[in-house]
Structure formats: structure tokens, C-alpha cells
């Protein structure tokens, strides 16, 4: 499932009151959006700094600051990641995030998705960069536990 599809599903759960996702939609939507954001980060590191993909998220968030091309995205991405994580974890005193909150968080991820897509496109056109295999290998390293089916 592509990032775009994940985000579309995340939105769909907010906007369409479907019986299939009654009650579970806030967490499900947050989980999907967070997955999307994590995959976007992997795509980004694959282009700029493959080793960072295996670092923990906190380190990744700090590292993002070193890239002027996405300077305006750093804060947004950090806030979105924290918000989504909080939304999909069990917290003793917190209720699931509201639709409005999720709407904002997903919008942040969608914005970042646009930026990453451009970066990837630029690198795909440049023959000097070997994006495909490198990305593949980095992803394998970045994943300590059983690989996903993707």
C-alpha cells in the first residue's frame, strides 16, 4: 500500500462515518498516518543519508534540521510525528485524538509527502544517483526485526 493510499485511508476514516471502523477510527487513522510518515522519512533518508534510516526516531528528527531544502518542514514533521504517536498509543488519561486534530496531523504528513516526492523525482532523474538498490539495502538494515511484506 502506497503512502498516498495510506493517507487516503486515514482521511476516509475521519470523513466517512463507516460502520466498519466505528470507535476504532481515531487510533486506526493515527496509526495509518504515522506509518505513512515513517515511510516518507525512509524515502527521504534513502536519498540523503541511508544510514540514518536505522537510527531511532528522535535522532532522525534532530537530523532533519541539517537539510535546508526541507527547513520549513522540520517543525511540522516533528509535531506531526509526536501527535500521531500520542494518538496511536495507549495513554492512561487520554482519549483518542479528535477528528480536527487528526485532520491537522494528516495534512502535515500530506505536505511532507509532496516535498519528499519532489526530492525523490529529482534524484530519479539524476543518473549519478543509484536510488533503487541503495534504498532497498538501507531499508533492510533499518529494520532490525522481521521484515514487512512490502
Amino acid at each position: 500500500m502506497t503512502v498516498a493510499e495510506q493517507l487516503r485511508w486515514a482521511r476516509r476514516m475521519l470523513d466517512h462515518a463507516e460502520a466498519t471502523t466505528v470507535g476504532v477510527w481515531p487510533r486506526a487513522s493515527a496509526l495509518l498516518a504515522r506509518h505513512a510518515l515513517e515511510e516518507l522519512l525512509e524515502e527521504f533518508w534513502a536519498v540523503h543519508s541511508p544510514p540514518l534510516a536505522s537510527a531511532n526516531r528522535r535522532a532522525q528528527m534532530v537530523a532533519l534540521r541539517g537539510y535546508p531544502a526541507i527547513a520549513d518542514q522540520v517543525a511540522i514533521v516533528r509535531v506531526a510525528y509526536a501527535g500521531l504517536s500520542s494518538g496511536c498509543h495507549h495513554h492512561p488519561y487520554e482519549l483518542p485524538p479528535t477528528r480536527a486534530e487528526l485532520d491537522g496531523l494528516i495534512a502535515a504528513v500530506e505536505g511532507f509527502a509532496g516535498v519528499v516526492a519532489k526530492i525523490v523525482a529529482v534524484n530519479a532523474r539524476s543518473p549519478s544517483e543509484v536510488v533503487g538498490p541503495a534504498k532497498q539495502s538501507e531499508r533492510a538494515r533499518a529494520t532490525p526485526r522481521p521484515k514487512s511484506g512490502r
Binding site: 500500500m1 493510499e5 495510506q6 485511508w9 466498519t20 471502523t21 476504532v24 487510533r27 486506526a28 496509526l31 495509518l32 506509518h35 496511536c88 498509543h89 495507549h90 514487512s148 511484506g149
Partner: peptide, 26 residues
């Protein structure tokens, strides 16, 4: 419930695989 809806074909696997483990962890 999500697994059930997945079996009925109402929710794609891509969603289930990302959401259900999260709920289990919760």
C-alpha cells in the same frame, strides 16, 4: 472487529496490517 471486516473484504490488507498490530500493542 477490524479483522472481521478485513475478511469480509471491506478493509484492505494494507490498512489492517498497519492498524491491527498497533491496537494489539495498545
Amino acid at each position: 472487529a477490524l479483522m472481521k471486516n478485513f475478511t469480509k473484504g471491506e478493509i484492505p490488507e494494507g490498512v489492517i496490517v498497519r492498524v491491527v498490530p498497533g491496537l494489539c500493542r495498545d
